[in-house]
């Protein structure tokens, strides 16, 4: 570019930024973050991976097991014909959260960690924080946008489950019985809480480490390995149990378990699904974790230097 073409003169007097209120800043920050998350291939990859995982483990494998008369992938020894009821629309509330505490949660953790942590390396946080909205509003926008992404993923999961189970019912000539609305709402709410908690955890660790790679690595090791190890130790040492019973993974797993995700006969069937806590305490604990993770991330973001 050697021709002198840059010019300080705008074509016409452009719009001027206004000083936003805290709420106005939050709304505009959310819109901005939604735009950039929507156009981020990584977000679509993560959502697609989860949906495929859900479809495969909740429906395809079990349907193949049922159709071929072999025992199911996680239901060894279970008679094939007892698999069918789990694959029909009426069973969606109990199946819905089955893969969420561990595998889905890990994917949402990655989503949160990438959304919050990448901006430090790219320098985009520094750009965002000089746009006008205050720090809390700007960061609140990221939290809200990640939350809306989680809502979108849960909604897509529901649509996929309804489609898959309806298809199986039609194929198998079963009459279509829809699940009770109350039970379905509970399952969707539980899914939102579980995914929301893990995504918030990802955001927090992303902010803490200021590095998406480190955050994702730590998060995966924690959710897939360390919690399971601790629970193993907890089974042997009673003192450790008090701690492992209130870990995020335990809470999320118990919430899924309380919703019937493990299957009637085997509550601990799907990996990550537990029956350690009852529905009430599990729900409360997951909600508390969600709020605490989000608030801690926001506080860190508000007080730390952005370099």
């Amino acid at each position: 570019m050697s021709t002198a073409t840059m010019t300080g003169r705008p074509a016409a007097r452009s719009e001027t930024r206004a000083v936003p209120t805290a709420l106005g800043g939050l709304v505009s920050s959310t819109r901005a973050e939604l735009l950039r998350l929507r156009k981020w291939p990584a977000v679509w990859v993560l959502a697609t991976v989860w949906l495929l995982l859900n479809l495969t483990f909740a429906y395809i494998f079990n349907y193949v097991a049922y159709a071929t008369g072999s025992s199911g992938f996680s239901n060894e020894g279970v008679a094939p014909e007892s698999l069918l009821p789990e694959l029909l629309p009426a069973a969606i509330p109990s199946v819905f959260t089955g893969g969420m505490p561990m595998f889905g949660g890990a994917i949402m953790f990655i989503l949160g960690a990438l959304a919050a942590g990448s901006g430090f390396g790219w320098g985009s946080w520094k750009t965002v924080l000089t746009q006008g909205p205050g720090r809390l509003s700007a960061f609140g926008g990221t939290l809200a946008a990640v939350g809306l992404a989680v809502v979108g993923v849960v909604a897509a999961t529901l649509v996929l489950d309804v489609a898959a189970s309806t298809l199986i019912a039609v194929f198998e000539g079963q009459s279509i019985a829809w699940p009770e609305f109350g039970a379905l709402a509970e399952a969707v709410g539980g899914g939102l809480l579980i995914f929301g908690m893990w995504a918030a955890a990802g955001v927090l660790v992303g902010v803490l480490t200021r590095s998406p790679a480190l955050a994702v690595g730590l998060g995966l090791v924690w959710s897939l390995v360390i919690e399971n190890l601790l629970r193993g130790v907890g089974n042997l040492l009673s003192g450790v149990e008090y701690v492992t019973n209130v870990l995020p993974g335990t809470a999320a797993g118990s919430l899924a378990g309380a919703l019937g995700a493990g299957g009637a006969g085997e509550p601990d069937g799907a990996p990550g699904v537990l029956t350690v806590l009852d529905a009430g305490p599990a729900t409360l604990l997951v909600a508390v974790y969600l709020v605490v993770f989000s608030a801690a991330a926001a506080l860190l973001m508000r007080h730390r230097d952005v370099v």
Partner: peptide
Amino acid sequence: VMARYQRISDR
């Protein structure tokens, strides 16, 4: 994205 943060239009 930055224009959204500032609440100004794409123009």
